[in-house]
Design a protein around this nucleic acid. Sequence first.
RNA 1: UCCUCAGUAGCUCAACGGCAGAGCGACCGGCUGUUAACCGGUAGGUUGCAGGUUCGAAUCCUGCCUGGGGAGCCA
Length: 464
Amino acid sequence: MEKVTVNQLVKNAENYADQNVTLSGWIRNNRDQKVFGFIALNDGTHFNTVQIVYEKEFLNNFEVVAGLGVGSAVTVKGRLVLTPESRQPFEIKAGEVMLEGASPEDYPIQPKRHSREFLREVAHLRPRTNLFTAVFRVRSLLAFAIHQFFQEKGFVCLHAPIITANDAEGAGELFRVTNLDLNNLPLTEDAKVDYSTDFFGKKTNLTVSGQLEAEAFALAFKDVYTFGPTFRAENSNTPRHAAEFWMIEPEIAFADLNDNMNLAEEMIKYLINYLLEKAEPEMTFFSQFVDKGLQEKLQNIVNAEFARISYTEAVEYLKKANQKFEYPVDWGKDLQTEHERYLTEKVFHKPVFVSDYPGGIKAFYMRLNDDQKTVAAMDLLVPGVGEIIGGSQREEREDILKKRMTEFNIEPEELRWYLDLRRYGGVKHAGFGLGFERAIMYFTGVSNIRDVIPFPRTVNNCEF
RNA sequence: UCCUCAGUAGCUCAACGGCAGAGCGACCGGCUGUUAACCGGUAGGUUGCAGGUUCGAAUCCUGCCUGGGGAGCCA
């Protein structure tokens, strides 16, 4: 008898009609009556469950099976029957139901709606629910799609270091990496911690970005990307921030900000198309129960051209908006969340690139424009989630870069190797960072980052 | 970190100064096609923690803890 998965059955039910099959999975729901019952079985290979029909007449352990609780693992042998008249296209008439692992009555997941907050407390069990089975399959598919997109275009993937001594990026608070005895710290003569005796002989931390390393590789391979974990020790308490998250950071040489935006737009559309095609049941589920009409919205985004405006134009839009903002709009000040939301949700109703921000509010490595006031930066804002991409053309002129570093209180000698990239065959290049989780949120409609990370790490929370 | 709302049965919530309740889930029973099944019954509580006000506190006050939402930081 053939061992099959739910995925195989759903996709080729006709081929298995009236055949005997064996499948193993977990019980999502079990409804018994006097002499027969129904099990909704999910084996993890497909979003759907398969209905198992069991009858007292054909089972030697009917009472045991009828008493099996939600969450129990079973192996079922039975005949596949097409049921085109019923709600499900086919079902399994069980000849044998073998218990693999029982699930007692205190199993926390019930056949009913649970709050996201409760399910976060049972993060080890929540992948067995409809919502999370869908979210995490999409996360897996999306990770693959990202590699496929860049590999198809000939990009080289590099694994940027996770431990780094770069202390000069200014991208937020850092997690210190050390193996010093914290209860007995070695001190220097002036009573500071003596890092020279630490593992690396210097102060080190977890990476906040692989960009600087990616630039080095872009100036060898031309087009590269990183895809890895990133760590920020910010005390951020929002549905969009986590202490550990993943980023995709492409970096392209002989390219400017416009090439950069073209790449970002092409990538977003590729990823959406991939999900609409490869995650049909999951996307339909999100569209029905998480974010009404999601599929149609995403389809529209694929067909639309993303809006592109400069920061200066954005400020003009905001100033003539007949809407009261809590924070005043003024050229030179950073855009607030309410401003970004207005632009993408009220003005354009689609993703919008905002580019060429004032130099004072952006990072030191962004290329100074000819106006001497703005830098070649770009953010991609999307409805609902806000900023999912931040990028720029990098400053390739060593003298200007040095000057910018000084303005940001960064000692150029600390990033000697980074300046070398400009000294030896330096060319114009650009790149961006895509927040992987924010992309998942945008594509699924799930509004809290804690619900798109298997075991999320946030302030005061490192369970599991 | 700041602002704001909430914490009552396993889950979702009601009771808002006077006997702590419902729906769902669980358990027991019934039901010959159910599908978040249905019908009947049973069990289940230190009302987040500590203190205070009151004859009396889930309810009012203070502090703390935890969670949600908003803001900042950003991806």
